[in-house]
Design a protein around this nucleic acid. Structure first.
Lengths: 126, 126
DNA sequence: AATCTGTTCTACTTTATCTAGAACAATAGT
DNA sequence: ACTATTGTTCTAGATAAAGTAGAACAGATT
């Protein structure tokens, strides 16, 4: 699984990392039970600082996507049958995005089409 | 139209403002052609600094949602028949969100249901 | 025993966010 | 014409976030 960092992006590095790990899980490149590289090894690989990777992992843990076992490693969690906490948090993030989509001129159907194409995009390309 | 600022939010004030304006447009509380309050009046009303409101307006202009007429005011743009630039930008923002939704255990159908409920939520409550 | 693990601590630089005040030139209202 | 208001631009300062850097610790792995 290849992670690409864009240093000049407006998205913080630690978010870029966690986003791409999430995408990797969604694509099936990494599976629940798999362990992520150590923060030191990963940082050396990416050419960035250890603490930045550490921050990524803790963000993923906060979102319930991985479990960090102290002095051992980070393991990808199994998706809960349904995570109510994540549901509420995600809804709050979707809202402004959807409002903007509507304002910019997208119809309800066009939004659904965009969502579908992104899902297909994620599930297809391996 | 009432704007609520949460100073302790992790979302910057200028983003909170532009988000709520976008939502207001999506709800029909404000319409294309309407003008926004002056940065000074709005800032005084919200109890924040002029420059923070100014930043919000420029963010909205960058997104193509309003037009700022120098020395005059900020006017809400008409939605273009279809804005290709916004389309690409929005897709990039949707992607990590959808990936996270999938990883957390949501099905394709559940994501669409969530989107639908948010759209209904926006279009209904006036 | 030696290495590797995540954790924790201090320290520093750079950038982002927010506030503050002043000045300018163009617009709008009277 | 006069006046107030407009967005713009500038300097300035405070606080927080982001990223890097190095060191040390204690538990886990080999």
């Amino acid at each position: 699984m290849i992670i690409r960092i864009e240093p000049d992006s407006d998205i913080p590095i630690y978010e870029q990392i966690s986003n791409q790990i999430v995408e990797g899980i969604a694509r099936g490149l990494i599976q629940p039970g798999d362990s992520l590289p150590s923060v030191r090894a990963f940082a050396a690989d990416l050419g960035i600082n250890m603490h930045t990777v550490n921050k990524s992992y803790h963000l993923l843990e906060k979102k319930g996507i991985i479990t960090i076992v102290p002095k051992s490693g980070a393991i990808i969690s199994s998706p809960l049958d349904f995570n109510e906490i994540s549901f509420g948090r995600l809804k709050a993030v979707y809202k402004p995005l959807i409002a903007e989509s509507l304002v910019v001129g997208m119809s309800k159907e066009q939004i659904h089409e965009l969502i579908s194409s992104i899902i297909q995009d994620i599930k297809k390309r391996n």
